[in-house]
């Protein structure tokens, strides 16, 4: 496994989430970031100051949820805690997921 296969997402409170680039590609924003000439492309490390670790954790959970169940029929429900709904709305809007 080369390093290029993984992306590190850093939250505002410095939580780091190391995810596969496949999962990162679910998000339109991350995808275009990684395909551009941005610094992030070479560093494989994206700082997301807007979101704290809790929200980002949930987003990452969704990325993998999407990856896993995209083509299946019986999809279990993705749980969103009520108190996070609005923040997630904002995050998903930003990340285009």
């Amino acid at each position: 496994m080369t390093q290029a296969m993984y992306i590190t997402l850093v939250s505002s409170d410095n939580f780091e989430f190391i995810i596969t680039s496949e999962a990162a590609n679910v998000s339109g924003t991350l995808r275009s970031m990684l395909q551009s000439t941005f610094k992030e492309t070479s560093e494989r490390r994206i700082r997301l100051h807007e979101f704290d670790g809790r929200v980002l954790g949930k987003v990452v959970e969704y990325l993998y949820y999407n990856l896993k169940y995209k083509d299946s029929v019986d999809v279990p429900e993705f749980d969103i805690p009520e108190e996070m709904a609005l923040e997630l709305l904002d995050a998903s809007d930003f990340l285009d997921v």
Partner: peptide
Amino acid sequence: KFPSLLDLAIKKV
């Protein structure tokens, strides 16, 4: 199509 996180969040809201 697979529900996007945005859809899910709006639904929750």
